[in-house]
């Protein structure tokens, strides 16, 4: 599969402050996004995620390195015609209505009148904003702005969609809807590159991830290769026995009424607790083994740096 995005040895420094001091934001960033996949770009605040995206979009001139989009240099007109972008915390012209706003962006792609009307109607339906189409953007909530922002990113039916924190400010239902839309992109053969702080969402939908810390990509690869099936610990909730009964067997997390929540790190001790519950006529309420998650990998990677 060809690369939809290829970034090689990207570097960027800024001179900031009243007495300008050079600060290196991106230090030799390299990664590639394959066509048709969903790629998650993660990192703590200030790691350089948005700066990388801005370099990719030509909003910031890199000091060094090469960037290509769908096989074209990133500054090329042709590359931009085939990509869509939703920025973090989008602010748009708030005096326009949802439909006027999308029509303006359609004009930037030179869409014809009929095609423009059809595309706008389709996108409003896709992002669930049909009823708010005639409302001025100033009256939109943050989640609604995020949805209409997503619609503008899709106005040209792009092959590559770049989303900077697309799930920020959304309620759980809205997050699910946006996640479903992103998954649908993959089915349509579109490539998605997105950044997010919400790691569960990334874990649910991404094929590949890259973790950036302090301006460097410190870990990258297919999600299934990064996240192992290893059980980290088992969470057990037991009722009818006092917390002291589990001394030395598991970590006592909380006590609610006669229920005790335990964190057990060794498999042998899980069985010991089960025997204890059986012998002393207690009751097992729940037992759930916790495997490694993307969040664990993220926390481990970031704290190592």
């Amino acid at each position: 599969m060809a690369d939809a995005v290829r970034i090689e040895n990207l570097r960027k420094s800024f001179r900031l402050g009243f007495i300008p001091k050079t600060r290196e934001i991106l230090k030799d960033i390299s990664f590639a996004v394959k066509e048709g996949e969903i790629f998650g770009y993660l990192g703590p605040n200030g790691a350089g995620k948005t700066t990388t995206i801005k370099c990719l979009l030509g909003l910031i001139h890199p000091d060094a390195g090469e960037i290509s989009i769908l096989g074209q240099p990133h500054f090329s007109y042709h590359a931009r015609e085939r990509l869509g972008f939703l920025p973090e915390n989008p602010y748009f012209y708030d005096y326009l209505t949802g439909s006027e706003f999308l029509a303006f962006y359609a004009d930037l792609f030179g869409l014809g009148r009929v095609e423009k009307a059809a595309r706008i109607a389709g996108l409003l339906k896709l992002v669930g904003m049909e009823r708010a189409a005639g409302l001025q953007l100033r009256k939109y909530s943050r989640g609604m702005l995020q949805r209409i922002g997503l619609a503008q990113a899709l106005i040209n039916d792009p092959r590559l969609v770049i989303l900077d924190e697309p799930l920020g400010g959304m309620d759980p239902l809205g997050r699910k809807e946006i996640r479903d839309i992103i998954v649908r992109f993959r089915q349509e053969g579109k490539t998605v590159l997105f950044t997010s702080h919400i790691l569960q969402d990334i874990e649910m939908i991404c094929d590949h991830v890259a973790i950036i810390v302090g301006g460097r990509v410190v870990r990258q690869g297919a999600l299934q290769d990064l996240v192992s099936e290893k059980v980290l610990f088992t969470e057990m909730t037991v009722a009818g026995l006092p917390p002291e009964a589990f001394h030395g067997l598991g970590e006592n997390v909380s006590v609610q009424g006669d229920k005790v929540l335990l964190k057990v790190y060794e498999e042998g001790r899980v069985e010991a607790i089960l025997s204890l519950v059986h012998d002393r006529r207690g009751r097992l309420v729940s037992l759930s083994p916790r495997t490694e998650t993307l969040e664990d990998i993220f926390v481990e990677t970031v704290s190592k740096q």
Partner: peptide, 14 residues
């Protein structure tokens, strides 16, 4: 300042 330029300049617009 209001960052509307981000979406504009990411389009095929010189």
């Amino acid at each position: 300042d209001k960052k509307t330029i981000f979406t504009l300049l990411s389009k095929p617009l010189h």
